[in-house]
Design a protein around this nucleic acid. Structure first.
Length: 422
RNA sequence: GGAGAGAUGGCAGAGCGGUUUAAUGCGGCGGUCUUGAAAACCGUUGUGGGCUUGUACCCCACCGGGGGUUCGAAUCCCUCUCUCUCCGCCA
């Protein structure tokens, strides 16, 4: 959420900035609501003040045994007036709030302006796509005899799920372990375990609600949702909290399954495990002071890149343009890994700085020193990495002419020294 | 699943319809004293919002969440959530 003060100033300037993100600000409606809010709030508070004073007077008069009928009469009409005023104010504020909750974050000044992913800016490339002396297969063709089983998953659940068996399942697990270990041992993240179901407040805090309910799996009976990313439970750890400056930065690494309905992606990536309803992800989350959040974004992105480098997977780093930025993000780097089966770079990580956007929704704050006013934190997160897609990248990049798949050396210790997946 | 108890400021803990917009203690911060520190003493110490060019002042809201009764609610009523104790069940 943006600072509500912004909506009381130059709405046209604000609207212009939001237009870069493809959002149309309802200027007239906002300015009308804001005008009415101001007069209604002032009036309501005046009435409340009146009521408080008269009620106190009644209390005192009663205690000293005086006649209170006169004061009681003077207060008679106040009640109804106050009630109406309070109800109207509440209505206005609810409306304002419901608009504010659907306004996306503003892009950072360093973000390229553009409409779609074609306008994303390539920041750097790492590694060279391997030249195969045969036609590389995609992961589905490669793995259907090696333990990736979409048909069984379709039977027991439905489309966009997978069953993994034997060494394929172990390789998948090894990736998770490798990523968690690297980030916690070398990058200073604290490993954390969280619930895979969250309440609506948490989703509101990180920005998935109220706008993107259709993308979620929900459990209406209990009023819970399956998490679409660990970002939701982990970031909400600091909801309604005030932390001390000395505790910052807070850095968490967390492995969870992620559940996404993929509504609106019906035709996309139907083959294989690029786009599943359930997938594993290792997520990096940071809470930092506002002055160093952009430095933290560079660091966090580098932490995610390190995984790809250690696995020797070629990738490129893209800076998303304004129109391609997510709802809550001020700036995002996507990491795209090379997939020989598709002859394309495909997203495998997304690293974002949300500035105070999520923190304001969550009331996640820090205090510089005893007695100082609390300030909003900046929150960041990034995949480090999406595990399913990393598995795909390994299968496709490490395939051999004999159809077997070499195991990256950094993973072998996690697989009892296994060198080849047959 | 059954029975009961509870949720108050950073923490502990009183208040159970007005005279307190929450007593007291601990902790934090500032000061006095001291070569310095401790102790003692004095003062101060929640969050959000409104008004305001900004500050100060002033005002409003907040005693787990929501709703109600009342001129007036931390206090009474309803409801939800969470915590604890006992019983049952259980990985």
């Amino acid at each position: 959420m943006l600072d509500s003060q912004l909506f009381r100033q130059d709405l046209n300037a604000l609207a212009e900035k939001l237009a870069a993100k493809g959002f149309q600000l309802p200027i007239e409606r906002l300015s009308n609501l804001e005008t009415e809010r101001k007069s209604c709030q002032t009036k309501t508070q005046q009435l409340q003040s009146d009521r408080n004073n008269r009620s106190k007077a009644i209390g005192k008069a009663k205690a000293s045994g005086q006649d209170i009928s006169e004061i009681m009469a003077s207060v008679a009409d106040l009640g109804e007036q106050l009630k109406q005023s309070e109800e109207r104010l509440e209505e206005i504020q609810r409306e304002l709030q419901s608009i504010l909750l659907t306004v996306p974050n503003l892009p950072h000044e360093s973000v390229p302006i553009g409409k779609s992913e074609e306008n994303n800016r390539e920041e750097r490339r790492w590694g060279t796509p391997k030249q195969f002396d045969f036609t590389p297969k995609d992961h589905v063709d490669l793995a259907n005899q090696k333990g990736l089983d979409f048909e069984t998953a379709a039977k027991i659940t439905g489309a966009r799920f997978v069953v993994m068996k034997g060494n394929m399942a172990k390789l998948h697990r090894a990736l998770i372990q490798f990523m968690l270990d690297l980030h916690s041992k070398e990058h200073g993240y604290t490993e954390i375990y969280v619930p895979y179901m969250v309440n609506a407040e948490s989703l509101l805090g990180t920005g998935q609600l109220p706008k993107f309910e259709a993308d979620l799996f929900s459990i209406p009976q209990q009023g819970l949702y399956l998490i679409p990313t660990a970002e939701v439970p982990v970031t909400n750890i600091l909801r309604d909290e005030i932390v001390n400056l000395e505790e910052l930065p807070l850095k968490f690494v967390c492995h969870t399954p992620c559940f996404r309905s993929e509504a609106g992606a019906y035709g996309k990536d139907t083959r294989g495990m690029i786009r599943q309803h359930q997938f594993e992800k290792v997520e990096l989350v940071q809470f930092v002071t506002p002055d160093r959040s952009y430095q933290a974004l560079e660091e966090l992105t580098h932490h995610a890149e390190t995984i790809l480098q250690r696995l020797d997977l070629p990738y490129r780093t893209m800076s998303l343009c304004s129109g391609d930025l997510g709802f809550s993000a001020a700036k995002t780097y996507d990491l795209e890994v090379w997939l020989p089966g598709q002859q394309k770079y495909r997203e495998i990580s997304s690293c974002s700085n949300f500035e105070a956007f999520q923190a304001r929704r969550m009331k996640a704050r820090f205090r510089k020193a005893q007695g100082e006013k609390p300030e909003l934190l900046h929150t960041l997160n990034g995949s480090g990495l999406a595990v399913g897609r990393t598995l795909v990248a390994i299968l496709e990049n490490y395939q051999q002419s004999d159809g077997k798949i070499a195991i990256p050396s950094v993973l072998q210790p996690y697989l009892n020294g296994l060198q080849v997946l047959e």
